[in-house]
Computed example of a mutant assay.
Amino acid sequence: MGRSATVVTPLVAALFAALLASCAGVVEGAPSVAGVGEPIYGLPVSDHSRVELAVAAAARDIAPCGLLDQNLVASLGQVTAFGPVGDLSTCHAELVPPRGTPANPVWVEVTVGEREPTEDTGAGEVTSGIEVRPAVGALPGTCTLYFSLPPVPGVPDDDTAPGRWGHVSYLDGAGGTGDSAGGDDCAEARTVLGSVADMLRTPVPVRSDIPLAQQDPCRVVEKMSGRGVETFSPGSRPYECLLTLRGGDAASVQLALSPEPSQTGGPEAVELDGKTFTYFRDALECHYYFYPGAVFDTNLPSSPVSERDKRSNRLTASVAASAPSCDDAETLVLAAAEMFDY
Rank of each mutant, 00 (worst) to 15 (best):
S208G: 11
M199Q: 12
G194Y: 04
S195V: 02
D185P: 11
V192R: 08
G183H: 06
D184L: 09
T191S: 11
C186Y: 08
T177D: 05
M199H: 11
A197T: 14
S195E: 11
T177I: 06
M199F: 02
D184E: 11
G178K: 05
D185G: 02
C186K: 08
A197D: 03
G194F: 08
G194A: 11
V196K: 11
G183F: 04
D184I: 01
V192Q: 03
V204S: 12
A187C: 00
P203N: 03
A189F: 04
T177F: 07
I210P: 03
R201E: 06
D209P: 09
P205Y: 13
A189Y: 00
D184P: 04
V192A: 03
A187Y: 08
S208D: 11
A181G: 09
S195D: 12
D198S: 14
L200H: 06
G194E: 10
A189V: 09
A181D: 10
T202L: 04
L193Y: 08
V206M: 14
R201S: 13
V196F: 08
V206A: 13
A197R: 15
E188I: 09
R201H: 05
I210W: 04
T191Q: 14
V196H: 10
A189D: 04
A197F: 11
T202N: 13
A187G: 12
V192L: 10
P203A: 03
G178D: 13
S180C: 05
G178V: 05
M199R: 09
T177V: 12
R201M: 09
A187S: 14
G194W: 09
D198H: 07
D198N: 15
T191H: 01
G182S: 11
A189H: 07
R190Q: 15
D184M: 10
V192P: 06
A187N: 08
T177P: 01
D179Y: 11
R201T: 14
V192D: 07
P205A: 13
R190A: 06
M199V: 06
D185H: 08
V206E: 13
L200E: 15
T202V: 05
S208Q: 06
P205S: 01
